[in-house]
Design a protein around this nucleic acid. Structure first.
Length: 491
RNA sequence: GGUACCUUGGCCGAGUGGCUAGGCAGUGGUCUGCAAAACCAUGUACGGCGGUUCGACUCCGCCAGGUACCUCCA
């Protein structure tokens, strides 16, 4: 019943045939945002990538439990304010409760995701809501002998772990290479080795976010939250774990190590990593100062932006590149995506206007098969989209009655576009008529443009042109159609 | 410095050992009172130098350039 689906597994560096642990069901875990700032373009890449994965798996019949966490505690910072929690730090600057800050950015993130038509996950657990589970993970690792306590903090003993398991198998790193690099981190002298990472951290006096534990009042290490939550909601073994490539090391490597240490085996069958978005060839990141928030994209308020870009343009732009490739942002590229998307969505509308004939002179099966085959080949959305564009040509020829199609083929074509464009790719039709939901405005426009049509019928070009020119001055864009008109408001 | 990856036509971006990716822009055309829009048609590109091969953009080596990770970031 299920199709053969290939997924590129970071561990094996190969495409592997997907086999779920439980027939017909998929457990999917994706690292969500750290809520200490507004979501920027970079955040939308994993969100859209795994939204596509979620949508496609669902489409082909799987029941997906999609868990995406909210990191609202736990990132140690290594800048001037050493060892402080990012969220705690910002909260003090703003004189707000840490949870208030976390909630504000969580709300903001969810709003942006909804705008991008990213479906909400099945479960969206927060790190602060799972302190007990994380403490349990730390205890298990201590009991297993792969961690040690030092000055109220608990560190994962990488050296010890490496004698029993392979540390670095996910990221392809070798212990010796890692040791060659020295680092200066907070609490370095408390650690036996620079490779060790904190799984429980004692809170400094000024640290607001803290919880009691057997070792100290403190907070869990960043890497511990995902393993605690994925185990709780998806089990000790689950199908797919996703995230950005930048999380591969150390975060995901540490997750693998912790699950082996705590559970005695690995948890994840398929590791999937999306590539980065670049801006002027460089990664977009908070610390680089070159990031553009999603809200800025949507309203065009940023020095890099020539114009606003709709959420669907952003979404389509991302889907036109494969998730494992870097994608370079530029106004030119986004404008191209905007126009291409427009053309695609118009064609989908056009399908409804096609008249059926007795015989089909076009063949659509190959296109449909190729589009699905592309998705089955490690979610190759750009190839699938190229097939959709091939179909646009067919659709337009049919609408122009240069080709013909029979009823069952037309139904098939329609189903294919509805499902592929809306359900799988998650694209949405932007509002017609400039998004004006002001019915009075619609009536007035209808009146004026109907007058114009009448003037044209009477060959009264002066009046017809006057109406169009005046409306253009007010920022309306008027288009003549064969049997009527169309208008929109230009921003 | 270590590790990995990348380099495709004006721009973005797929892909393959020999067969048109696709989008945008450009060009030509159709339609239109005009205009806009729309539609149709059109582009033999794969960083450099060697090698393997009947044949390489696709495999191997070297060189150049770039990026990411190694420390918080998707």
């Amino acid at each position: 019943m299920f199709k053969d689906l290939l997924i590129y597994n970071t561990v094996s560096k190969k495409k592997e045939l997907f086999k779920p642990i439980v027939e017909g069901k998929v457990g999917l875990y994706v690292c969500g945002p750290t809520v200490y700032g507004h979501a920027h373009l970079g955040h939308s890449r994993p969100a859209i990538t795994f939204d596509l994965v979620n949508r496609y798996l669902t489409h082909i019949g799987y029941q997906v439990r999609y868990v995406r966490n909210i990191t609202d505690v736990g990132h140690l910072v290594n800048d001037a304010d050493e060892g402080e929690d990012k969220i705690g730090k910002l909260a003090k600057l703003n004189a707000l409760e840490p949870m208030e800050v976390a909630q504000m950015y969580t709300n903001s993130y969810r709003r942006n995701m909804a705008q991008l038509n990213v479906l909400p996950p099945s479960i969206e657990p927060t790190a602060t809501g799972h302190i007990i589970e994380q403490i349990e993970v730390v205890k298990k690792i201590l009991d297993a002998g792969y961690a040690y306590e030092s000055e109220g903090s608990v560190y994962f003993d990488v050296q010890k772990y490496a004698t029993d398991y392979e540390y670095g198998k996910l990221s392809g790193r070798k212990i010796e290479d890692l040791q060659a690099n020295t680092r200066s981190l907070d609490g370095q002298d408390e650690k036996n080795s620079s490779l060790d990472f904190a799984i429980w951290k004692k809170a400094a006096p000024e640290h607001i976010m803290r919880w009691p534990s057997p070792w100290s009042d403190g907070f869990p290490g960043w890497h511990t939250e995902c393993i605690a939550m994925s185990t709780k909601y998806l089990g000790e073994k689950f199908d797919i774990h996703g995230g950005g490539m930048d999380l591969m090391f150390p975060h995901h490597e540490a997750e693998v190590a912790q699950s082996c240490a705590a559970l005695g085996h690995e948890s994840v069958n398929y590791w999937m990593h999306n590539n980065m978005i670049t801006i002027n060839g460089q990664k977009m990141g908070k610390s680089l100062g070159n990031f553009i928030t999603l809200d800025q994209f949507f309203d065009g308020e940023h020095e890099y932006l020539d114009q606003p870009y709709s959420p669907m343009t952003i979404r389509f732009f991302m889907l036109q590149a494969h998730y494992r490739s870097t994608l370079d942002f530029s106004n030119e590229a986004l404008q191209a995506a905007e126009k291409g998307l427009d053309r695609l969505l118009k064609a989908v509308d056009t399908i409804g206007k096609i008249k059926t004939a007795k015989e089909s002179t076009v063949s659509i099966n190959e296109m449909i098969e190729k589009a699905y085959a592309a998705m089955d080949d490690d979610f190759n959305s750009p190839i699938a989209i190229s097939q959709l564009f091939d179909g646009v040509r067919i659709i337009n020829s049919l609408a122009d009655e240069k080709e013909s199609i029979n009823g069952s083929d037309l139904a098939k074509l329609n189903k294919f576009y509805q499902e592929f464009v809306f359900d799988i790719l998650g694209l949405q039709n932007v509002e017609a008529n400039g998004g004006a939901d002001d019915s009075k405005l619609n009536e007035v426009m209808d009146l004026l443009l109907t007058l114009r049509v009448e003037a044209k019928a009477n060959k009264d070009w002066a009046t017809a042109d006057k109406i169009r020119n005046e409306l253009t001055k007010f920022g309306f864009e008027i288009k003549d159609l064969k049997d009527g008109f169309e208008w929109k408001i230009n921003d």
